[in-house]
Amino acid sequence: MRDRRRYLVFNVLSEIAVDKYKLLNAIWESVYSLYGDVGTSEIKPWLIKYDKTGIGMVRCTHRKVDELRAALACVHSVGGAKVGIRVIGISGTIKCAYRIAGW
């Protein structure tokens, strides 16, 4: 059965432009170190899109939004550059999430 999802649109404030794959690693590392393998499998985080302007979108299951938000907040550096991530909006559909992100 397909589970219900939430799409989190976030903004990355960083010293220098952040590479997508390095950001992806940082998010994974943060989620893993906070919740472990079991917790991560329940959250099911997935980076959908990240563009050069610093706006990105991640997906998770609909009951684990706060957990993913905490994990995003705990990302403090990406490839040596300091960053701060802030969630701008949450949506239940990818179409609406794109509208929030302004893509």
């Binding site: 404030l13 010293e15 938000r69 905490a70 907040a73 701060g84 802030r86």
Partner: peptide, 18 residues
């Protein structure tokens, strides 16, 4: 200590839940 250390209120609430 820098602007990158700041977190929005909602993120603070989520981290406090930890």
């Amino acid at each position: 200590c820098s602007i990158y250390g700041l977190r929005a209120p909602r993120e603070m609430i989520a981290v406090a839940a930890l």
